[in-house]
Write a protein that binds this DNA or RNA. Structure first.
Lengths: 139, 139
DNA sequence: ATGCACCTTCCCATCATGGTAAGGTCAACC
DNA sequence: GGTTGACCTTACCATGATGGGAAGGTGCAT
C-alpha cells in the first residue's frame, strides 16, 4: 500500500505520515524498488491509533508514550489512566482560560450599543480607560 | 523611556515590542543617539491596548483592525462589536471542541480501572477496537 | 510515447513567543 | 582612567503541527 492509500485509509495526510517517520514516532516504512514507501495492515493500524489520539488533543510526545503503552503487554492501565487524567487537566485549563476571555468579551459586547456612534465600551476597555469589568480581583 | 521600561510598564516583552514594530503593528520607535529605541506616553498606551487585546485572545490581525478603529474618531461601535462577536464565536468553537475531547476522555477514564492489569478501554478505544462511546447516552 | 497520477526530497510559511550570541552604550564605582 | 554590570542593538534559530510548493523520479493506461 502506497502512502496515498495509507493516508486515505487513516485520515492522516501523506505529509504528516512522512513527518511522523522523520521524528521517529513511527518506524521507517519499507521501501519498494521504486523507493516508494510501502505500508501494511500494522502500519495502518498504528496510524489510525495516532489519528484518534490527535483528535483527542494528545500532543506528539503524549502519543509517543501512548504508543509505547499500547505495545507493552505488561502495561498497567494505571499508567494509561494517569496520562489521560493529566491530559484532561490540561484541557480543563485551556477551557477555563478561553471561558474567561469569552465571558469578559460577552459582557463588553452586551454593554456595546453597536450603532453608528463611536462610543464603545469594548475599545474603552482595551484602551485602559477602565479596568476590565467583573474580573477576579488580581493580586 | 527605553524599551525595558516600556516593557515593564505594559507587560509586553521587549522581544515582542521589537517584533510588533517589525511587522508594522506599531510605528517604528524614535531612536536616541545611542540607537536605543525611545518610547513616550502614547507608545506605552498603545502597547497596553495591544496587551489587553492579546489577553482576550485576539490575533495580531484582529488587533491591527482594533487599533485602526481605536484611532478612528468616525468609527461606528457597530464595527467594533462585530469584530468582538466574531471573536466570541471563534472562542465558542474552540471551547466546544475542547469540551468534546474532554467529555470523551472523561468517559473513557471513568471506564478504566486504573489498576495493575493491562486491560484498558482508553487504549482499546485508540486502537480502534471499538468506536468512541456515545457520550450523550450516559450523561 | 505521451500524459497523468502518484511518489520522492528539500525548503519555506504559519503564529506568537522565547533563547542565545556577538557586540554597542552608559552610568556608577574604585 | 579602568572595570563592572545593566541595558540596549541586530541576527539567527527553535517551538508544534501542519500545509504549500518546487524539481524531479516512477508507473500505468491510453
Amino acid at each position: 500500500m502506497q502512502i496515498g492509500a495509507a493516508s486515505r485509509a487513516t485520515g492522516v495526510s501523506a505529509k504528516m505520515i512522512r513527518h511522523y517517520e522523520s521524528i521517529g514516532l513511527i518506524p521507517a516504512a519499507d521501501r519498494r524498488d521504486s523507493n516508494y514507501r510501502d505500508y501494511g495492515a500494522e502500519d495502518v493500524h498504528r496510524l489510525g491509533f495516532i489519528r484518534r489520539a490527535r483528535d483527542l488533543g494528545f500532543s506528539i510526545d503524549e502519543i509517543r508514550d501512548l504508543l509505547k503503552l499500547w505495545g507493552d503487554r505488561r502495561r498497567s492501565s494505571r499508567n494509561v489512566k494517569k496520562l489521560t487524567l493529566d491530559h484532561i487537566a490540561e484541557l480543563d485549563s485551556k477551557i477555563a482560560l478561553l471561558g474567561e476571555m469569552r465571558a469578559t468579551l460577552a459582557h463588553l459586547a452586551e454593554c456595546c450599543d453597536g450603532g453608528d456612534r463611536p462610543d464603545c465600551p469594548i475599545i474603552e476597555s482595551l484602551a485602559g480607560a477602565a479596568p476590565l469589568p467583573h474580573r477576579h480581583h488580581h493580586h
